[in-house]
Amino acid sequence: MSGEAGPADAAKTGADAGAAPLTERGARTRARIVAAAREVFEERGFLDTRVAHITRHAKVAYGSFYTYFPSKEAVFLEVADRLFQEMTQHDLLPAAGPSPAARVRRANRGYYEAYRRNAKMMAIIEQVATFNVEFQELRRKHRAGAIGRSAKAIERWQRAGLVDPGIDAEMAARALAAMVDHSLYLWLVQGEDAPDTQRLLDTLDDLTIRALGLQA
């Protein structure tokens, strides 16, 4: 990966195998660096961010950064990993709820709220995804988990006679996730002209419900 090289004796991140456990103070410092990194990435973008920008914003010594992260790429991966965990906890088709259609509506609104909160970082993520292979793999891992859970929900509904058994559950989950995700990206990140939010979400709900043949 390209980027600033850390000191030769920089310690591995706390997440690395064999790393010593962090003290309470160390954990607080690390968390402050991660929080500051996110704010700096959102302000400057990934390419223009330097470790010095992050440490200055976190109010820690420059060398302290390398106690916890070997590079700005490493802290970016941690920021992105946390963001993906928040984003993908809202399954497209959650298991619990009064009815499948109600679950779809609740999930779409949960995902919209998460996307809206993270819109600035989502823009940076799209930038980094074009050239960072390690980051691409991280995004694929989280996306695959969410799609897999949605596919299992479709399969359950197929067994219950609620969805056409001829539908490919995995491909349906992928296609529906892409529709929702890209629609929100254009709306919240690109600022593309669109109907009001409620109309957009209602339409995404209707398209998902009708695609699966669910009772509204």
Rank of each mutant, 00 (worst) to 15 (best):
D81A: 15
E86D: 15
G110M: 05
E134P: 06
R109T: 02
H53R: 02
Q136G: 13
A101I: 03
D48F: 08
G18E: 06
H53L: 04
T29V: 14
L92D: 00
G145S: 08
R199Y: 06
V133Q: 15
P70R: 13
A153C: 04
V180S: 03
A74S: 12
K120L: 15
V34Q: 11
G6Y: 04
L138N: 06
S99W: 07
E39Q: 12
K120G: 10
S99D: 14
A169T: 00
P195D: 10
L184H: 01
A15P: 01
E86T: 12
A10P: 02
M122I: 11
K12E: 11
H90F: 07
F84T: 05
A52F: 05
A52L: 14
S150G: 08
K59C: 05
A194V: 04
L186P: 03
R116A: 15
L93D: 00
E134Y: 11
D48M: 10
L204Q: 03
A35N: 15
L176Y: 02
L138K: 08
R117K: 09
A144Q: 11
E170N: 12
F69T: 03
I54R: 02
G213N: 05
E78A: 11
A178I: 04
R109A: 03
Y112F: 13
V51A: 05
P70D: 11
L207S: 07
R149E: 06
R156A: 09
F69C: 06
S64E: 09
D9W: 14
T203Q: 12
L83P: 02
G148Q: 12
E86A: 13
R44S: 11
I124R: 14
L212C: 09
V189T: 07
G166D: 14
A123C: 10
W157H: 06
V34M: 06
A20S: 15
A10E: 04
A144Y: 10
A107S: 08
L22H: 04
L204R: 01
R116G: 13
E86N: 13
L92S: 02
V128L: 05
A61H: 15
T197A: 07
V79T: 03
E134G: 09
V60R: 04
R109I: 00
E73P: 03
R50Q: 14
F41I: 01
G6S: 09
R109Y: 06
A19T: 10
G110I: 05
I33Q: 02
G166P: 06
Y62Q: 14
R44K: 15
R25C: 05
